[in-house]
Design a protein around this nucleic acid. Structure first.
Lengths: 206, 206
DNA sequence: TAGATTGTTAATCGATTAACAATC
DNA sequence: TAGATTGTTAATCGATTAACAATC
């Protein structure tokens, strides 16, 4: 097992998600058609880039008009799997964990948060957006019972590796890491580090 | 004014930030030297990529040994401007705003959060990590007084455009947008949308 | 029609990877 | 020395942009 199949380039997945944001907004404003140049100008990208990405959806637009917004939205949802919900748990019930647990938009994109975990006994049994906080020691049992493979790691950097070890031992396959630390995991487990600081620096650097 | 000068490629900035995470960890474990292959294997990238990025720092390693960890760390800090703190405020004092306000690591990377803003009167005058929450109506005054140019936008999607309008009107130059919405701003203001959902989908897509 | 927009190919651009001489 | 690592050039790869015929 070297790599997940990747028919759609990473960049395209990210852009298509942004197109989906835009189409939602266009529809909310009563616009039923959206053109490649409209999307492109909102994102400051090339319009032929948009058309190429849309081609991945296997739909066709109307010459002189643009794309049917509902049709394009639906195609993106199918292509990117918004309609095949993926379960996840959050490890670290701090503010960031709470924010992700409460993030209503996740559901629209097929991300289904089931529960939170923390090592603070004071937090255990509280609920956030209807999701229970469990003690971290329950992670292996509950993970197995719920068959969940995805963990969001929202603990402080100094605890990240230890938490990752627990997550790995509990049989998870994907760790979405929000801490500014590179964690090591056994072969076969995928880690994605959300590099907030790097993104910020790339953004504001003079 | 079309574009900020960009001597260092975006990708390199992000990778160098990750190298910094790694060097911190290596030093914490008493390792004073770090090689390109060590960094590369932790990040699953090519080792010549690492050497190329390091070359941007204008330091040289030791053949047969690697890079001096302290020297490389310092060079990255200087190159990326960690030592020239940038002030910012947070608009939206929800869980995500709180998480960013409390995120201790920001300081190490030159990100200095001064205050938070919210439209909920109940939150006004509370403090988070020593930072005061002000009513959103105070944004123009305080922004001018503090000379701050960067705003982190952490309100829900449905309020994002409205909040962005206030931020733009208050004279900010950079908006780091965490909501799943593409916001429109006047010419001359930079927006970066942190595409969490896109990143997630790119990560776990089968 | 004239004008606007798609779909797609070709050209350009930039980023990653491979290779290897130089070095200690 | 032998082995490991850097620094750098060349080769490859992939992504973006330009261009334009086809269409309504």
């Amino acid at each position: 097992m070297t790599e997940t199949k990747k028919i759609i380039p990473s960049r395209a997945v990210k852009r298509l998600t942004l197109y989906h944001y835009i189409i939602n907004d266009e529809l909310a404003h009563g616009r039923k058609v959206v053109s490649s140049s409209r999307i492109a100008s909102l994102l400051n990208i090339d319009d032929s880039q948009v058309r190429k990405d849309v081609a991945l959806c296997r739909i066709t637009g109307k010459t002189n008009v643009g794309y049917d917004a509902l049709e394009l939205r639906k195609s993106i949802e199918i292509l990117l799997g918004f309609r095949e919900p993926k379960d996840a748990v959050i490890v670290g019930a701090g503010n960031l964990g709470f924010a992700l647990a409460k993030f209503a938009d996740f559901k629209d994109y097929g991300i289904n948060v089931l529960a939170l975990f923390d090592n603070d006994p004071m937090k255990v049994d509280l609920t956030v957006s209807g999701k229970t906080i469990f003690h971290i020691s329950k992670l292996p049992n509950i993970a197995k019972r719920l068959q969940v493979e995805i963990a969001f790691l929202t603990v402080p950097g100094r605890s990240a590796q230890k938490a990752a070890d627990l997550i790995a031992a509990a049989g998870f396959k994907f760790i979405w890491n929000f801490s500014p630390v590179i964690i090591s995991v056994p072969e076969g487990i995928m880690v994605r580090t959300e590099n907030l600081i790097g993104n910020f620096l790339d953004f504001v650097r003079a």
